[in-house]
Design a protein around this nucleic acid. Structure first.
Lengths: 242, 242
DNA sequence: GCGCATTTCAAATGTACTTTTGAAACAGGC
DNA sequence: GCCTGTTTCAAAAGTACATTTGAAATGCGC
């Protein structure tokens, strides 16, 4: 078994570069040639070390997924008996971290986002491992925070609001356009904290309002009656068009 | 000038099919062959009628963009003197509509989302026409709603929260996985209304809270001091890990 | 130093596409 | 009914890839 050390070395180098390239361009637009040249190795290396581009991609995904989950465990690693607000914050932090942290976990979030938009079927099971539990945790959490009167639809909508604020960070962050006035180029930890703080606070207010609506107004079918306690009627504007 | 009617007809047919295919698969994964066969025309038709795949794509985009803006005008078509809450709701409605409405505007939102994730540079100017004004309007709106003490960062973060809740709808909606308990297969108008109602209510609460924080606690640099009026200290959990 | 399994490499092959081409089908003007 | 510019078509050419191949390099046990 000669030169094995060298072999592993270039294998790892390719893996690292490939993660970057896949994150940047997506599976289809990334080319083996690009990956190999950036990794300073021959074009045949992918085939030799991984069998094919697909298998390389799957391996990249597995690693990124594991590392991201280790660096940002779901619900921030809190147990089910921690206060709901803490767990909400932990979940937000975990999502934002995965998507905004480039250095520590190297683009894992970008891969996830790309998979969501453009499923490759290479890794159906990994996605299920990643997304379904998250969805279920979020459902339980919202149910708990909204109280016993909440409808399934309300639970789902609130969970959606929270998750969407987090995942769309990725779009914003990766689309190249750096938006003004939030230091998206700040040190990762600080950026993640800023975003987590904001989303947690913003979302808690939304959840609290929804809970108050539920407790005040009973719980009619959501789309039948508009908001119970609003100052101005907004519906008129869109009554027919929407 | 013979057969011109037929020419326009197949041109339009290709345009319609192409929009669908591009929305479904993205620019690179969509193939001319697929488009032409679905449009029941020859593979050379794209080249003949549009010059190239790229130009076809650009034309598809222009049309989709115009139709979407007509069906769901920014801020719901309200003037700058309408109440801020109404304009917020209008903006949300416009975004959600563009992304969730399949029938009326045929996947325009999906195209937009794909461009955001995977810019093609085919249509840089069109994107600027679409995105920059939206961002600016949202900035003004948030500034107004948060009051004079709001920092640029707070303005930007709140705007982000609103927009992200809307655009991530698209990801959810197009990734195929229909989530439970929100009737994503409901008639479009009803779906758009349900989502708009929820996001508007949820976001108003978040904005109001932020405004109260600003008015209560002065306005320190956002990342220096955590939330002023929270019951439990949440920061400890993540103090070192990020 | 020799043989051997492992790793690299440049070139060749294979494949999925986009675009071109030149001929055929076509609709109206005359 | 024929001529003319327009549209369709099947096949060919061109292009950008991923993958394979067979030979050359490389380190290690002996």
């Amino acid at each position: 078994m000669a030169r094995r050390k060298d072999g592993v070395e270039t294998r790892d180098r390719i893996l690292a570069v490939a993660r970057e390239v896949f994150a940047e361009k997506g599976y289809h637009e990334a080319t083996v040639e690009d990956i190999c040249s950036r990794a300073a190795s021959n074009i045949a290396a992918v085939s030799y070390h991984f069998g094919s581009k697909e298998e390389l991609y799957a391996e990249v995904w597995r690693r990124a997924f594991d590392e991201a989950n280790e660096a940002y465990p779901p619900e921030g690693g809190l147990g089910p008996d921690a206060p709901a607000e803490d767990r909400l914050r932990g979940t937000i932090h975990s999502l934002v971290g995965k998507l905004a942290d480039r250095g520590r976990i190297g683009h894992a979030g970008r891969l996830l986002l790309r998979e969501m938009m453009n499923p490759t079927e290479v890794i159906e099971h990994v996605k299920n491992d990643a997304l379904r539990p998250m969805q279920e945790r979020m459902g339980r959490l919202m149910k708990e925070m909204l109280g016993p009167g909440a409808s399934e639809e309300q639970i789902h909508l609130c969970g959606m609001s929270v998750v969407h604020q987090c995942i769309a960070i990725g779009i914003r962050l990766f689309s190249g356009k750096v938006p003004p006035h939030v230091r998206f180029d700040a040190p990762t930890d600080q950026l993640v904290k800023t975003l987590t703080d904001h989303i947690a606070r913003f979302s808690l207010a939304g959840i609290k309002t929804t809970r108050e609506d539920i407790e005040a107004g009973g719980n009619e079918p959501f789309d039948a009656a508009p908001a119970p306690n609003r100052k101005r009627g907004l519906t008129r504007v869109f009554s027919d068009r929407a």
